[in-house]
Design a protein around this nucleic acid. Structure first.
Lengths: 225, 225
DNA sequence: CTTTATAATTGTGTATACAAAGTACGTCTT
DNA sequence: AAGACGTACTTTGTATACACAATTATAAAG
């Protein structure tokens, strides 16, 4: 009983650097901090009400995650995504998501299958309401269920990190309801393949899903830049 | 002229945190800092003759790379690799190395092919001398040529990072000359497949290569722990 | 008016200081 | 003698101060 409370408090405690890290990451992913924008330590420290130290430590992590680029003696800025960069990331994601879905075919337990069904339905449901935030969250949840069923922690971490780097660009096209029905169908295809343990079919469905994402994001990149 | 010198100086300049980062990483990979060993900031700062700040910043990066584990308010320690962890990493590497070699089949230019031939020969040559350091370096070079030919920067970064995490364990079994001839043959198989643009065959050869590594490393893990 | 040099401002890099948390050891009590 | 409590010491986390590098602006000279 006491131990549970302690555990909870332990989980709640986060070093300031991690709070800052999460805050900045969120700001970058939601577009509040725009690509190319300068990140000045003192300025951020003032804004967040902390000293430079946690800011600096958070920046090192963001740098390694690829969300900010540091130029020695010139400071940090929010990473810009180039088309090349996007293609590189998606080329890797294709391979990793294929691996993930194949592993899911082998390893997904019955409870998780129910969860996946629910995630699928939920996604179809929120699509109707046209609320961007709900849609992205439901989408993330669907993919998370698959990822977690692989039981491979490293894979989970890597795919999440790669996916994260495109959230800012995905946001723009998820607003466009033209793609909504296609997304639902693609999810269903992946779901069906996993249920029938058809690894190759599942992998194929994932490739289609990512290819469509790539095409759509690049279209929107060209429009907006 | 002036710009070149400046550029060179820029390249040479490394923030202390990066020097520390490289130093610690090297120490961990070579086994100087052993898995589970505590990393105390003040102690390290004294040893390296710097303040705690660059040490801390280096730690954040090592943490994200997976080489050290941080426990809030308790400090850092060198990450232990469990068998599960190893299998997770290699499962991902299998997928990424397959991708890399397939891309290499498509994209490798003629000059790079010559380079690869050289790397192959060099590896076979140093195997004779039985010098562990030379062998590992030649091995890294061979795989680097393939990786770079993909032209995918993200892929290069990820594979390097994953490979890095096993160097400490690989060292032990590369000493064992029993595996040497097999390694040469496996490299040749990969080389041949790339030359003939046989993507599936190349991927298969890579899988064999990694499977053997996995088996061997796990054997040695069991022996030594 | 343009160019160069110097000074001032801005921002990063490093070190130190202080506060809070955790650990270990010793003592006291049962 | 064993366990629990408390105190002292160690170590991390955060803040601040100082130093150095770079860029920009201003002034002087050509």
């Amino acid at each position: 009983m006491m131990l549970d409370m302690l555990q909870q408090n332990m989980d709640e405690y986060l070093p300031l650097r991690d709070v800052v890290f999460n805050t900045l990451r969120q700001a970058i992913l939601t577009g509040e901090l725009k690509p190319g924008e300068r990140l000045m330590e003192i300025h951020l420290a003032d804004r967040l009400g902390v000293s430079r130290t946690p800011i600096r430590e958070a920046m090192r992590k963001l740098e390694l995650e690829g969300l900010v680029v540091m130029i020695p003696r010139k400071g940090a800025q929010v990473a810009r995504i180039t088309e090349k960069n996007l293609k590189d990331v998606l080329e890797v994601r294709r391979a990793l998501d294929m691996l993930a879905v194949k592993l899911a075919c082998d390893r997904m337990g019955d409870e998780t299958k129910i969860e996946l069904r629910k995630a699928c339905d939920e996604f179809a449901a929120v699509i109707q309401n046209n609320n961007t935030k709900d849609i992205t969250e439901a989408d993330v949840r669907f993919h998370d269920v698959i990822l977690k069923s692989t039981g491979n922690d490293r894979l989970i971490q890597l795919v999440n990190n790669l996916a994260e780097q495109m959230y800012r660009y995905r946001l723009e096209y998820i607003k466009d309801s033209a793609y909504h029905n296609r997304l639902v169908k693609e999810h269903e295809a992946i779901y069906d393949a996993i249920m029938n343990h058809e690894k190759e079919k599942a992998a194929e469905a994932v490739v289609v899903h990512i290819d469509n994402q790539e095409r759509t994001i690049i279209e929107h990149l060209h429009l907006n830049v």
